[in-house]
Write a protein that binds this DNA or RNA. Structure first.
Length: 139
DNA sequence: GCCAACGTTGGC
DNA sequence: GCCAACGTTGGC
């Protein structure tokens, strides 16, 4: 099992919208960055990730699960781009802000803290467990 | 709204 | 294959 983090501007696609999709989940489309795409290609069904609100909030808000492995992005005909589907699992009982992550020594290596521009990124098992504990949810 | 960091494109 | 120009992301 691998762990990830998905960024979205809540203006465009929010956690609430993701939750509303229920068990079916939603295509994580629109990614046009090779690194982010490669991360999605590496995902397996059942992998988990944090759902992060960029720009507004700048915080991790919930847990999602990969429910369909990488397949063509329906929003483009360009064969370079494909994406996974994810579904909401549960909200964090306490949201973790970027500001907070930056000052926590255990999280100083997080991609979120060090590469602000990567929209789909890996999270280490240690970071995953640490943030789940902070967020009040089971890892 | 600004701008730093980063990616991509395309001319050479 | 280099690099200048340009575009985008996202924190501030």
């Amino acid at each position: 099992m691998n762990y990830w983090l998905f960024k979205s501007e809540p203006d465009t696609w929010s956690w609430d919208q993701q939750v509303a999709k229920g068990e079916v989940g939603e295509e994580w489309n629109g990614v046009r960055n090779y690194q982010a795409r490669n991360n999605m290609r590496a995902m397996k069904i059942g992998d988990r990730g944090f759902f992060y609100h960029s720009n507004i909030g700048k915080e991790m808000v919930g847990i999602v699960e990969v429910c369909r492995e990488s397949s063509p992005d329906s929003t483009t005909d360009d064969p370079r781009w494909d994406c996974v589907w994810i579904k909401a699992v549960e909200p964090l009982k306490r949201r973790i802000t970027l500001e907070e992550a930056k000052i926590i020594p255990e999280l100083e290596k997080m991609v979120l803290v060090n590469n602000t521009r990567l929209s789909v990124q890996p999270v280490s098992p240690e970071e995953w467990a640490f943030i789940c504990a902070l967020g009040g949810v089971d890892p």
